[in-house]
Simulated assay, not measured.
Amino acid sequence: MTVRSRALVALAALALLAPSSATASPDRSPETASTSAGSTRSAAVAREDAPAVRVLAVSVDALNPTAMRRLGREAVPHLWRLVDEGAATLNARAQYELTLTLPNHTSMVTGRRVAKRAGGHGVTWNTERPRSTVHRAAGERVRSVFTEVAAAGGSTALFSTKAKFRTFTRSWPRAIDRTVIRVGDDDALVRAARADLVTHDRALTFVHLGVADAAGHAHGFMSPDYLRAVEHADDLVGTLLAAIDTEPTLDDVVVVLTADHGGVGRDHAQADQLGDYRIPFMVWGPGVEHGDLYDMNPTYVDPGRSRPRPVGRQPVRNSDLANLVTTLLGLGAVPGSQFDVRQRLRVSGGR
């Protein structure tokens, strides 16, 4: 099947998908808009009209949208390609409570906020703790996008440049089929991820790139070294996009790219600073229409320069990744999730 025909099939399938059966209103706060622990996957799992796509989720650690604008399309063409050809915004938001790597990535894969007291995942640390799990942090069993894909019979893989991501493998060992950690070596990681994409038919591949974050901490975010690192990250994203462009077996891959936080000075822990909490969110691939995510999603609110609390109508957040992935794969919302529970984040005319 060609890329164009695959795209038409996927787009038609996305248009046929019904919203999740969760009862919460999209305008209610995440505290009350969570799926129950006992909820089941959508019937879309077994439906013939489920989207014929796979998902490549990419997190560019510390990708400040200001860097993309400053560098421009010539310097970071692959990131801008996702904007210019896909559904995207450069004004999404990180988690309200913390702008740290592990807490935000845990929100990405669980669809939960951070604060345990509000039904969140409770992961507040940002280092590798060899005995830590998400379940222990939350005080209960926590489901993730990995568990939902695995339960539906799909294969998943996790690639990261930071050891702390082993928290996910410890938490969901039966749901993540392959974990590759290459500490500080983004090039080797992307080579491994590209090879895995080509040789394995996985429903979900999650890739974390850390090069921009490392440069920001060492030299300052928005420094020349940081901007060069963003260019490097763009090259790595380009390697993955080139594989999708040239390998016939990858013409069904949808890319979802976001970030955990930005950065100000040499840090990103100031959750109340725009440079820390403003991030990109981009979706590109078969069945995805070009457009601004806020224009395509009137139930979401463009926050401007503000930092909305996780109550009421929401901006696009990195935590929307979990249930966007389940939507693209024809699955129901992640049980216990709090963001996009009704799976209404649209990336096409149908979904």
Rank of each mutant, 00 (worst) to 15 (best):
G154E: 03
G139F: 10
L241P: 01
R141L: 13
Q95D: 14
T66Q: 14
A150T: 13
R228P: 00
D27W: 09
P65M: 03
F339E: 02
V253T: 15
V255I: 14
R305A: 11
G216M: 01
G139Y: 03
P103T: 05
A118L: 14
A12Q: 13
N126C: 08
T110F: 14
V53A: 08
G153Y: 07
L79V: 00
F281N: 10
I181A: 07
D267Y: 09
D185H: 14
I176E: 08
F221P: 11
V183D: 15
T258H: 01
D186Q: 04
T167K: 07
P224A: 13
D272E: 15
T169Y: 13
L56Q: 09
N318D: 04
T327E: 01
T299E: 08
L102P: 00
P298W: 05
L345S: 05
Q343S: 10
L331S: 05
S107G: 10
V53M: 02
P303V: 00
G111D: 03
F159E: 11
V76G: 03
P51A: 06
V142C: 05
V311C: 05
A44R: 08
L204K: 14
V114D: 09
G120I: 01
M282T: 06
L236I: 08
R69P: 03
P26T: 13
H200Q: 14
K162T: 05
R117H: 13
V109A: 04
T326Q: 07
G275K: 02
R69K: 15
G216N: 09
P77H: 11
A12Y: 12
R307Q: 13
R191Q: 07
G210H: 10
R141V: 03
I244V: 10
S348L: 07
P26L: 01
D187C: 00
V180E: 15
M68E: 11
V76C: 12
R307P: 10
H121A: 12
H232D: 12
E140S: 14
F165C: 03
Y294T: 04
D213V: 05
T89S: 12
L82P: 12
A137I: 08
G210M: 01
P315I: 00
A214C: 01
A24Y: 05
T101N: 04
S25C: 02
A10E: 04
P51M: 08
E97R: 04
L158W: 12
T239A: 09
H268C: 01
D84C: 03
G139A: 07
Y226S: 03
V55F: 06
A115P: 00
T66I: 01
L158D: 10
L158S: 11
S107C: 06
D320L: 01
S36G: 15
E148N: 11
L90V: 01
G238P: 05
L321Q: 02
T246D: 15
H290I: 00
D185I: 00
G285W: 01
S107I: 06
S34N: 12
R317C: 01
R141K: 15
F146E: 00
S20N: 10
D234M: 02
V76I: 03
R307G: 06
S171N: 09
L257V: 09
E247I: 02
H121Q: 09
G86M: 04
A195R: 14
P315N: 08
T161R: 08
